[in-house]
């Protein structure tokens, strides 16, 4: 064991804390754009957390899910942005 899995879990916990801080912005955000920024931030952090947890559990499947999640969340962000552009 080079790095104990406790270290990976600690990193994942700190990243989850960051996500909770970002949720504050989703709740407060005065405009829709602010909420989308918060959502985008959370998406990036979810991908990072999934990769770290894949190393902690020794499961390669988690990384595959993370790749698909990154691409799909990007498409979701683009759709919300397009909807925002159309509505004044």
């Amino acid at each position: 064991m080079i790095v104990s899995s406790v270290a990976f879990f600690a990193v994942a916990a700190v990243l989850s804390l960051c996500m909770i801080i970002s949720v504050v912005r989703i709740g407060l955000g005065p405009t829709v754009a602010d909420r989308v920024v918060g959502l985008d931030t959370i998406n990036t952090m979810v991908v990072a957390t999934m990769i770290v947890l894949a190393a902690a559990f020794d499961q390669v499947v988690f990384v595959d899910v993370a790749i698909i999640y990154a691409l799909l969340s990007f498409v979701g962000t683009l759709y919300v942005a397009r909807y925002l552009e159309k509505s004044p």
């Binding site: 989308v36 990007f74 942005a81 397009r82 552009e85 509505s87």
Partner: peptide, 16 residues
């Protein structure tokens, strides 16, 4: 994907 997504949000915010 990350910079492209933020670019889309910035443009949409300005247009809205």
């Amino acid at each position: 994907t990350n910079p492209t997504g933020s670019h889309a949000i910035a443009r949409a915010a300005h247009r809205s």
